[in-house]
Design a protein around this nucleic acid. Sequence first.
DNA 1: TTTACTTAGTTTAATCAATAGACAAACTAA
DNA 2: TTAGTTTGTCTATTGATTAAACTAAGTAAA
Lengths: 383, 383
Amino acid sequence: MKTTGDQFLVKKINKSIVLDTIRDQSPISRAAVSKMTGLNKGTVSSLVAELINNEFVLEIGTGKSSGGRKPVMLLFHETAGYAIGVELGVAKIRTILTNLNGEMVEEASRKLARTEIEYVTQELFAAIQSMIDLTPPSRYGIVGIGIGVPGIVDETGRILFAPNLQWENMDLNALISEHFQLPVTIDNEANAGAVGEQQYGAGRDAANIVYISVSEGIGTGIIFGRELFRGAAGLSGEMGHMTIEANGRKCRCGNKGCWELYASTSSHPQYDFDTLVQMSASGEADGIRGFYEMGEYLGIGISTIINTFNPELIIIGNQMMRAERWITSAIQQTVATRSLSYHRKHSSIRFAQLETRSTLLGAAYYAISGFFSKDRASLAETM
Amino acid sequence: MKTTGDQFLVKKINKSIVLDTIRDQSPISRAAVSKMTGLNKGTVSSLVAELINNEFVLEIGTGKSSGGRKPVMLLFHETAGYAIGVELGVAKIRTILTNLNGEMVEEASRKLARTEIEYVTQELFAAIQSMIDLTPPSRYGIVGIGIGVPGIVDETGRILFAPNLQWENMDLNALISEHFQLPVTIDNEANAGAVGEQQYGAGRDAANIVYISVSEGIGTGIIFGRELFRGAAGLSGEMGHMTIEANGRKCRCGNKGCWELYASTSSHPQYDFDTLVQMSASGEADGIRGFYEMGEYLGIGISTIINTFNPELIIIGNQMMRAERWITSAIQQTVATRSLSYHRKHSSIRFAQLETRSTLLGAAYYAISGFFSKDRASLAETM
DNA sequence: TTTACTTAGTTTAATCAATAGACAAACTAA
DNA sequence: TTAGTTTGTCTATTGATTAAACTAAGTAAA
């Protein structure tokens, strides 16, 4: 059943437009919000009054006059609540605490000695609890927890398969949300990274982004029309397993010639990634050649992505960023020869701006956006 | 500037929900519409009254009582207007006339002797005019023209590049819409085919579809969340040029090892497509083997599509449909070994249900949906 | 035939959100 | 001092939905 329209829907739409405008443009006056949104001045006044009442917006005194009465400047109240972002890796758990603007206020990391579920969940509980303990007092407190994991996650937050952790079919979402009694969002590490870069990093102005997380495997997060794409079952974006050599090496996924066998950090036949970085940094030809070849293969996959999606922006993130200066030209050259010219003109390639925090900040954003997009029933309570 | 909410928006939303419900479920009573949509009985009554007034809906007498007053059954008035769908091919122009339900009422085809722009546009004008001449009288007449073309089209309907017609950068939309003074939508043939199958064919219940148009090249139309995906500049879906052999044959697009070099109807090194069909039909091993290999390569690309998009449905259309019985098992087997099991479970592969009319019906649907989704300003005039 | 009960559809009064426009407040500039 | 401008609030109006009453028109059982 489609949601029908009524006045509550109208108010919800307009209230979130006003709040978004204030958040993006603050400090801003009521009059300016009215002009920008096209909403009537009176409407803006009344919605702002409610937002102030709920502490989502603050007045911070008058601004400069432009020939008439001085405007009262409004600010998004970024510390009315906090969000927790978690990145569950194979060897460590990283956590951050952000305000409602996605600005980091605390950060921590703890090593994981093993990968058994019981041990890891205990460590997760402890890591999250320590962030909660560090949270300053605020109106809404912790508004939610977002978690990025290295594996396939369905739409409900169940981890279907995490090869590196050797987990299968595990309902992490239920576990965490029951323990902390807070809203929890769990997603693939690449999806979270894509969202992080889109909200706070290299993709802030782009509507269509493909984020490529390159480490031991290759994961992708696809954003269309400013929204993360999820396939039929919430799965998607496993482009690391697209075929680029029809009769290439065998992959553990069952396929042959998968992209990640040729372009991930573990794809070099001889040296591991750390060694390659060291060699290249000290100018050794073998290292530089190794990265050049990886860059070419990355370019092959990126060309397919450009022809398929024609995204405004392709962002390369995760471990492979450390090789930026040795792979960039190989990628660019390969893409220049292999992608369709009409598409290439509209696509550019960049490296992640948030460096190693794309996933963490994206995870925190899941919690923040979940808080602000609650459905009508729960909105009525808080807003 | 985001569209803000007001009561006109609410009415527009609800009116289109009511109309959609009647169209999908007709014949249906007002009471049933109210139950299905959750809208108040009075609201439904008043919206239906307006729809009847505008001849979008008809009353067709009473239905069966279920223990009380007999319901008045409502019907979507499918002949209140007509749409024209056009498929511009290399050797011919095909045209159909449909009612507002996308049901074909006229069909025609005319051969193209040459591909020069002047000649082809004259033929297009004549082909469309002959459909207009055949249109029965109705309240709204021809509501629009949709055209599917073999090439890259931008969001405004400008043909950027049509290799088979040898056209470049041509504003076909302006040409046609000025000549007939009607709304015109122009899109790539594969996108139109995807929309056709989604609305009227194999994909009617699916939200996420990838339509693969396989003829001399391979084009794809991607539908997410019941909406056609368009990339940054309205371009997208040129998956025929994804790399499946990193060092494969040279393609005219500049890339090497493009999918369409191995899996299109023109990909056999020795025989042309018609010959292969004939050979296979008469049981010749060479023909059957040829199709088996094509099926394998199709399967390779489809596996990548499954891993990338995890669509509910993959639809194979256009010329390659004629080889359905010889390629199906090769495709299925290849996909079974090459795609990720978690994704494969949620994806199924079918052939186009509208046969050779996917593109034509999709093009007509562009015109119909354009008519029903006019913006508020023009809606006020007609509705 | 009568009576009780159902279902369909309309009408009416109430609610509520946005809007236009009047108005007050506070400022600039001549 | 005065005229004009900008900001923000207040008020009456509009219009869409809704709940609930009401009318219409049937079924079913005593």
